[in-house]
């Protein structure tokens, strides 16, 4: 968690990133930026999914509806925060000429989305029968 806190300061300070290493080819920075934007869109899609669960499954029991919606919204928030954090780390690694940071986040997010999807199928089928 400490490296994360150190990175949070970098989120706001453009000059601190430029203090070390050398500026990489601008095309690498732009590719990093596009990856960041793709993660941000993923986050927005998860948030939109939270709205959709709330809006389009009104017959669901309150606890299930709110639980699924909150799970999607929370994963959207996590995804957005992680997007900027990963972008900063990749930018730093490129300046220092190090390897790009590895991450377990894509796996965790895939598993979480799979669990929510299965839960939704089960809940909707159970809702029809009940």
């Amino acid at each position: 968690m400490i490296p994360f806190a150190r990175n949070v300061r970098l989120w706001f300070a453009p000059q601190r990133i430029r203090e070390e290493g050398s500026t990489p080819d601008y095309r690498f920075s732009l590719a990093n930026e596009r990856t960041f934007l793709a993660w941000l869109r993923t986050a927005l899609a998860l948030i939109g999914g939270g709205f959709a669960v709330d809006q389009f499954l009104p017959d669901l029991r309150w606890a299930w509806r709110v639980g699924l919606a909150l799970a999607l919204l929370a994963s959207g928030v996590l995804c957005a925060l992680r997007a900027v954090n990963h972008w900063v780390r990749a930018e730093q690694a490129m300046r220092r000429g190090e390897d790009l940071p590895l991450s377990r986040f894509p796996t965790v997010l895939s598993l979480a989305v799979a669990v929510v999807a299965v839960a939704m199928v089960v809940v909707v089928i159970a809702g029809w029968e009940g």
């Binding site: 706001f12 920075s29 925060l81």
Partner: peptide, 26 residues
């Protein structure tokens, strides 16, 4: 030039705030 971190952070914070609005509504 590369994207400024504060712009990246601003975009992320707007997204997080939208999610908080959604939480209020849910």
């Amino acid at each position: 030039t590369a994207l400024a971190p504060r712009h990246a952070t601003a975009a992320v914070l707007y997204t997080v705030a939208l999610a908080l609005c959604a939480t209020l509504l849910v």
